[in-house]
Amino acid sequence: WFFEVCFAVTESLNTTNSSTKIEPKQMKVLFFEDCVCATITSTILQTLNSKVSWDRFGLSIKDVQVTDTGIALIEWEGPAQLESILLVLHRYRSSQTMLQSWSRETQLCKRCIEDALNDLKQQNPHLFCSHSSKELQRYVPDLSCCLSKLISSSSDIEFKDSCAQILGLQSTDYNDIRSSITTRLLQVIEDLDKQ
């Protein structure tokens, strides 16, 4: 089997109401077999529904349906800035392949979809941050606050200067330290998430 996967997503430019409630949106999935548009197979539907690790990309799948025309509609939830997702899958077979292996097909399809999501994530880490990283980000304000209080309240001038130096700061002001630590922690979480 060979798979080609392409995602086309749109990002909303209006992020002012991003804090309001998240409503499920619909992802259209088009399937092509040997370059011809075809009805999506049950194996691929199953892969989309239960094999792909959507949570690693900050997405949750709520429902999967197939229309009369063979197009799959996936109800999803994710970041508010993510407006729409279109997925196109192309499957074809090498002429030498004699046996069909459904488990192999599932593995390949899953890997290809996740690779395409990863391609999106590398370019747009803010849109495809994993659920676990979002969880970690919640601790950043508290941790930054705690660390900067520890540093700025110290009476050891040498220690304070050394901390400021490590952070690349000129001052040992509480707000400067907190802001620097916050930025650094968020960057580390984003970098690890991309890996």
Partner: peptide, 11 residues
Amino acid sequence: SIKIGKAFSGS
């Protein structure tokens, strides 16, 4: 704005 992510995999 539209973003594109793509991949290929084969056995």
